[in-house]
Each structure stands twice: as structure tokens, then as C-alpha cells.
Design a protein around this nucleic acid. Structure first.
Length: 280
DNA sequence: AAGCCAACCTGGACGC
DNA sequence: TGCGTCCAGGTTGGCT
């Protein structure tokens, strides 16, 4: 039984994007509160006030796990890291102690970026330049926005690394974390530590399709909620039903397809879960 | 030079 | 009850 909170991967970030948008798009930032806290990059309060105060939010985009708050005069790029959350709250209500950034939108709505483990990031770029921002430009295709099969096939053909490493590499495919990488491999019948270049192209194509399918399922479910319900959307709802995970966190349990005992091995500092019979 | 691995960080689970 | 220890993972950077 896994009990740690779910880390935001693509479906969780997309769920945040969708739940946030109706409350803040079209609104103007009337107050900015930025703490000089060392996230993946430090947040310097001054440019936040200078560039975001008074700006109107036109839309919220997403690339992989990055959220893009597109204002008329700046774009705010946010990565939730492992424990980051964006909360909508009434101004004045009690703050989580790990609040790093607050954007006050008037009409009694404020957006708070909370991230206890501080693996997240928030930074400002010039509007319309996101494809030139190094972090974003280097991302591989987003499985919910385009077909990742060609990129995945090319990367796999050229790599001796375990296939799961490729799936976790955001430069190959953007948006997967350890949970959905493991799940997609289970659905495709591919062992997570199988050397990428040894997988037949048609099986890689199948994997690309299963990536899409597993992400869509999760999106429908509104993001994965593990045992203790760690993930909540922007409005703080936590009533999601958990996506049925086939292998992740199920070491020792029977494979839902064949009944074999699901195994866990640690590789690349991360747990890989798989059915030894279904996945080769 | 690709691929591996430690480091970053803290809440929660677990054991005694 | 409480304290200590361990573990989780996204991303980067250093090492081989």
C-alpha cells in the first residue's frame, strides 16, 4: 500500500489548469506577494511586483508539467515539482506556512503557490516567448497535444538506456512521472528496464498509444488520488476517485490481468513496478 | 558522450 | 507518546 501523496504529473497539472481557469482568466492582478524563498530557482519579489502587478490574465496554458499563466504583459511559468499546489483562496484566510507566492485577483480571489518540498519553480518570461525559454524549448512532445510516437520511436532506436528512463526524460516525452511511466509500460506489456533499442518499433508505437490512454483515463478521473488523498485540485476538492493503477505501488499484489505477483525493483533511484509475466 | 547517480527537501509512515 | 529513521520523487549537474 502506497501512502505518499501523488506527485503532480501531466493529468494532475491539466486538472489544475482546468479548474483554475474559470476563476481567474480575465481578471487583473491587484496584489502580489512574493517570498524570497529558494525554490528550484529563487523568487525575487521585485520583478514580480514590477511585471505582474496590474497585468490581466488572458489564458492558462500548459506544456508537459509546466503551467503557463499568460498575462497581457508577461507569462508566468509554474512547475509544481513534487509537492507544489496552486490554491484558490479568499484573501486573509490562513496561509499554509509554505506559501511562496500570492497573486491577488480582486473580487475576493487570490491564487497561492504552496510548495513544502520546494522542488517547484515559478518564474516570469516575456509574453509570447515561451518557445524560446530553455526549460520549455527543450521539452519533448506533449502526449495530450500531439502524437509522441515518432519522437519516442526515434529516441528508443538510439538509446541503450532502460525504456522507463526515456519515458521519464522530459526531453523525449513531456509530462510523465514515475507513476504513469510504470502504468503505460504495464499496459503496453513492456518491462520497465528493457533496453530501449531492443524494442520493436511497432511495440514502441503501441507504447505511445498506451501513454495517451493512461493519461486520458487519469484526466477523466481528475487526477490520481492515492491512499491518503494527497492530490487536490485548485479549488481544494479532494473527492476524486482514484485511478485504478495496475502495477504502481502494488508490489506483492496479483497482476489484474494474469494474477502473477507484481514485483518492485529499484533502478535509477526510483521504484519500477511490473508484472514479470505480462511485461517483457 | 550517453547514461548513471547523488543532491536537493520535508511530510508522513514506521519502529522501538 | 515521542523520538529517530527512512522513504517518496522531478530535475539538474557532476562524474565516468
Amino acid at each position: 500500500m502506497v501512502s505518499s501523496p501523488a506527485v503532480p504529473e501531466l493529468p494532475e497539472v491539466e486538472t489544475v489548469r482546468r479548474s483554475l481557469a474559470p476563476h481567474v482568466v480575465g481578471r487583473r492582478v491587484e496584489r502580489v506577494e512574493a517570498r524570497r524563498i529558494k525554490l528550484r530557482r529563487g523568487i525575487d519579489p521585485r520583478p514580480w511586483r514590477a511585471r505582474v502587478l496590474g497585468a490581466t490574465l488572458e489564458r492558462i496554458g500548459r506544456r508537459g508539467k509546466y503551467l503557463l499563466l499568460e498575462f497581457d504583459r508577461a507569462t508566468v511559468v509554474i512547475h509544481l515539482g513534487m509537492s507544489g499546489r496552486l490554491q484558490l483562496a479568499r484573501p486573509g484566510r490562513e496561509h499554509d506556512p509554505h506559501t511562496h507566492l500570492v497573486l491577488g485577483f480582486g473580487r475576493g480571489v487570490e491564487l497561492r503557490f504552496v510548495d513544502p518540498r520546494r522542488f517547484g519553480a515559478a518564474f516570469i518570461v516575456a509574453p509570447g516567448t515561451t518557445d524560446r525559454v530553455p526549460e520549455l524549448a527543450a521539452l519533448g512532445p506533449d502526449p495530450m497535444q500531439e502524437d509522441v510516437a515518432p519522437a519516442l520511436r526515434d529516441a528508443a532506436a538510439r538509446s541503450r538506456a532502460p525504456i522507463r528512463s526515456l519515458l521519464l526524460d522530459q526531453h523525449v516525452v513531456a509530462g510523465l512521472g514515475n507513476i504513469y511511466a510504470n502504468e503505460a509500460l504495464a499496459r503496453a506489456g513492456i518491462h520497465p528496464l528493457r533496453r530501449a533499442e531492443t524494442i520493436a518499433p511497432r511495440r514502441v508505437a503501441r507504447l505511445a498509444a498506451e501513454i495517451r490512454a493512461v493519461l486520458e483515463n487519469a484526466l477523466i478521473a481528475g487526477g490520481t488520488t492515492l491512499a491518503d488523498g494527497g492530490f487536490a485540485d485548485a479549488e481544494g476538492a479532494s473527492g476524486y476517485f482514484a485511478v485504478q493503477l495496475a502495477v504502481y505501488g502494488r508490489e506483492g499484489e496479483p497482476c489484474p490481468r494474469c494474477g502473477s505477483v507484481i514485483r518492485r525493483v529499484v533502478a535509477g533511484n526510483r521504484s519500477a513496478f511490473f508484472c514479470p509475466r505480462c511485461q517483457r
